[in-house]
Amino acid sequence: MKKVLSLVLAFVLMFTICIPVFAEYVGSTPVRVDGSTVGASYTVTIPATATITWGQTEKSVEYSVYSQLATGKGVKVTVNADADGKMKNAANTAFLEYSLKSGTTEYTTTKSVILSENAEKSSVVVQIPTANWDKASIDNYVGTLTFSAELTNI
């Protein structure tokens, strides 16, 4: 036990012998960059398709946003369903009503600069109540979610 203790103490002592270097303050020079001419940019990445299994009452569709904006600026993403609120089969003879869960159709980024690898993610939730499933003939129904983005103050 004494041997171990002595070894540890020796190790700690080593650090204490660092040599302090003294510097003398000369003055400060501002370093500036003019961002006003640099274009702000942001990207909203959305999935091409999202498949909903039969009977699934809620399907969340995730998208991500990264941006490089002026300070105080953010990206507001808005998602819209089909105008008539219906998915249609290929022959346009059968329909399946759906809606977007309220509160999930908009998202505003929290920061003006979001790195792509740390993109902010959000999900819009497609809602299809069981009653709608039950009254629909079995088919492949297709709908469209339209994403639109705009700058906004955050």
Binding site: I46, P47, T49, A50, W54, N140
Partner: peptide, 27 residues
């Protein structure tokens, strides 16, 4: 105008559409 390079990518059609479709099988 400040050229804000903005894009909604990844979607089908014109890029800003996500196609949602149903499957005839349940999970």
């Amino acid at each position: 105008c400040v050229p804000a390079f903005a894009a909604v990518t990844g979607g089908s059609n014109a890029g800003n559409d996500t196609i949602i479709n149903t499957d005839t099988k349940k999970d």
